[in-house]
Design a protein around this nucleic acid. Structure first.
Length: 280
DNA sequence: CTCAGTGTTCAGTG
DNA sequence: TCACTGAACACTGA
């Protein structure tokens, strides 16, 4: 679930709680499956006592900028989430991160806990443990970040540039939208939602699009991202007519949207929900 | 008990 | 070298 709008909402939460404040205590919970770039103690020591000067995001990656390097970088993977403890816990169920504390009184699946001198607390949890966290003093040397294309929300290529890019690509649109080197931050539901609004089949090859179709695609992506980011990725505030609200319905039965059948099948390597009747 | 679903990485193919 | 495909990764929740 954590795609660009979700990560942006998480970035804003961290910015509100941490920016301009000093980290009094940092706790990294050891985990042999989740990928830590350094050992937990090293990460803790790099964070404790440091002033947070900014919180950044590119695609689905986020980072904490500290008064001195190294900085902390992270990715939520498929099931990671970040929230403020002690704050209202909206939407947690939808994200698979039960707000329920275990016997220790801490969140389940806790991986990182930060506390500011003022008492603000930020928790990074990850049930399926495919998230990542690492320290970096020089992100320009980090493959994970340098391989990213422009952020789909803040730096989407202009129409002419996009036309030129897609003209050279033979992969299906679904795969192209998911390519982080092209549209950093786009994930499975955003790709499907975008194609639905653009009325384009996920199977169309990039090179097959007319300039007008590229324009439709670009506009749909901008609209979806703008709205999702504006409402802080609160799914309940997504418009009723978005595919989002219908794509998962009844895992078995056929679902319909506006009277048209939603088909679910793998395209570009991922489960794709689309409406063949109107997506051509 | 089985299996879908989530994003990135890596091996393999053309 | 590049574009692309598909599997693996680990786990939860249905």
């Amino acid at each position: 679930m954590p795609e660009l709008p979700e990560v942006e909402s998480v970035r804003r939460i961290m910015e509100r709680v941490l920016k301009g404040r000093r980290i009094a205590k940092a706790e990294v919970v050891p985990d042999d499956i989740m990928q830590f770039g350094q050992n937990p103690l090293t990460i803790q020591e790099a964070l404790e006592g440091k002033l947070v000067t900014a919180v950044g995001r590119h695609g689905k990656y986020w980072w904490l900028e500290l008064e001195e390097k190294p900085w902390l970088y992270g990715h939520l993977g498929m099931s990671g989430w970040i929230r403020e403890l002690g704050a209202p816990t909206m939407r947690l169920k939808e994200h698979g991160n039960a707000p329920l504390d275990d016997e220790t009184g801490r969140p389940r699946f806790l991986k990182l806990l930060l506390e500011t001198e003022e008492g603000g607390r930020i928790a990074f949890t990850d049930g399926r443990r495919l998230g990542r966290m690492w320290l970096s003093s020089d992100p320009t040397q980090d493959d994970r970040l340098t391989k990213l294309g422009p952020d789909a929300y803040t730096a989407l290529p202009e129409l002419d540039a996009l036309i030129a890019i897609l003209k050279k690509r033979k992969a299906p649109l679904k795969a192209l939208l998911l390519d982080q080197g092209l549209f950093a931050g786009v994930g499975n539901w955003i790709a499907d939602e975008t194609l639905y609004h653009a009325r384009l089949s996920p199977k169309r090859l990039g090179s097959s699009l007319t300039p007008q179709e590229v324009a439709q695609l670009r506009k749909a992506l901008v609209d979806v991202l703008d709205h999702a980011v504006r409402v802080d990725a609160d799914y309940e505030q997504f418009p009723e007519d978005w595919l989002f609200h219908h794509r998962w319905g009844g895992s078995k039965g056929t679902e319909f949207i506006d009277g048209k059948q939603i088909v679910r099948e793998p395209v570009g390597g991922r489960t794709t929900a689309w409406v063949p009747e109107i997506q051509l």
